[in-house]
Design a protein around this nucleic acid. Sequence first.
DNA 1: TTAGGTGCAAAACCTTTGCACACAG
DNA 2: CTGTGTGCAAAGGTTTTGCACCTAA
Lengths: 135, 135
Amino acid sequence: MKRNTWQREAVREALDDTEGFISAQALHSSLHASGSPIGLATVYRALGDLAATGEADSLQSPEGEALYRACSTTGHHHHLICRNCGLTVEIAADEVEVWAKRVAAEHGFTGAAHVVDVFGLCANCTKLLGAGPSH
Amino acid sequence: MKRNTWQREAVREALDDTEGFISAQALHSSLHASGSPIGLATVYRALGDLAATGEADSLQSPEGEALYRACSTTGHHHHLICRNCGLTVEIAADEVEVWAKRVAAEHGFTGAAHVVDVFGLCANCTKLLGAGPSH
DNA sequence: TTAGGTGCAAAACCTTTGCACACAG
DNA sequence: CTGTGTGCAAAGGTTTTGCACCTAA
């Protein structure tokens, strides 16, 4: 059985308090800043568990970090993430769900954990930085 | 200007010879196995350049590695990747292109470098491992 | 009590970088 | 020649792991 430790709770709460995705390291820093003497390894372990249980969503940032987010245990949705300010918008992705399943099935794939996340620039950062020069 | 070294060519060729995505490390190993005394750092640098030039596609595997693939400079397509054997199927993603653009626009996002890649189990590995227990 | 969680530090891992040398142009 | 690419090894970053201690049930 899983025990209920204050560390676990702290991680869960910190995750809930976070707007968008956050890295394990950032979350650890945040907790430390709030006075929690929680260890980095514990944060990693807690986040791993949360992700495994479905209580958190995880994805890989383009920089190679794992990002976590408190997630409605309910739906499988996707995200629109600003690569500049980190703003995250949750998007219902019914169409893509259907599409992903169909395509996967067409090729005989199963268990398609479809990673459909869109990194872009939000309206605000678009203004700040001008039209995307990159790419 | 970019110089034309045999190392660069070797990386390009090795990438062309590869079916799906391959990690920098794996590609380096593969090259070594073929007798090329190319250095790991050089492989990373070459792959980085290729990705920057658009001659290669790169994405982050769930395991946190950067994967590269020789890519048609032409279209923006996506991939269906077996998380067990690495088999990669290229998928035309017109629908998703449209969808991604619309959703991004709806939220005021621009420059959406939509990462639409599906990790799953291919038909073969599904048989080998049984129905997906994960998730 | 006792299985499981925690903390610390070391390790493993992928990737980048500094520097001297080699080579393409 | 000259500047860029290369190789090696060391450094950088994130994540995992070993082990002793602690603690929730």
